[in-house]
Amino acid sequence: MFEARLGQATILKKILDAIKDLLNEATFDCSDSGIQLQAMDNSHVSLVSLTLRSDGFDKFRCDRNLSMGMNLGSMAKILKCANNEDNVTMKAQDNADTVTIMFESANQEKVSDYEMKLMNLDQEHLGIPETDFSCVVRMPAMEFARICRDLAQFSESVVICCTKEGVKFSASGDVGTANIKLAQTGSVDKEEEAVIIEMQEPVTLTFACRYLNAFTKATPLSTQVQLSMCADVPLVVEYAIKDLGHIRYYLAPKIED
């Protein structure tokens, strides 16, 4: 028996919005420690890794490890039927071929449930090696989304250059060149507005805008985003999900032809 309950459907809606542009379907691996999802996008350029800890749920029970392959388009249709403040419960029997998603209004006067067919997906888990990153940048998630959106107008690629002074995002194309520099913030009143750079050595890497923009669909989950970079290894873009876990996106760099 698997049962996981969250106080607000809005969190699940935001999580789904953060992955459904990259993934058509995905397997949710459930165990007593929580829910994990790891999947590559169709073109195998990026990897999504979602961790939801069991202690972050209002109720969590998982008697036996369970892998639930879900069509994310179908899940989106179901979540559209929930009000943001509704409680949401996911339930499945051991070895079931369906999952039930139930919404309850705050006053318990409306209860709806949706049974969704599960899929058998070919799971390909990748081993992610530990990396000592050269640069780790923490910045407001909205600012990162804005920069990715703005630079995508100018080029398919964005160059991220990080030094101890700051981080520079550049794009160059037919229109010309765009550069956006962010300096490390001195003192800020609000932690969520800070730009913080931890640098071992400077790094310059090139990434496809289209994927960065897909990652920023996670912006509503978190006030801050963390970018971890190292020469010739995938970028890690991490959004914390408060009291519940995190979503990490890995993006392979572009290299000169």
Partner: peptide, 12 residues
């Protein structure tokens, strides 16, 4: 050139 993520992370 866009590299594939599988060229960095090996299949388990």
């Amino acid at each position: 050139m866009q590299k594939s993520i599988t060229s960095f992370f090996k299949r388990k």
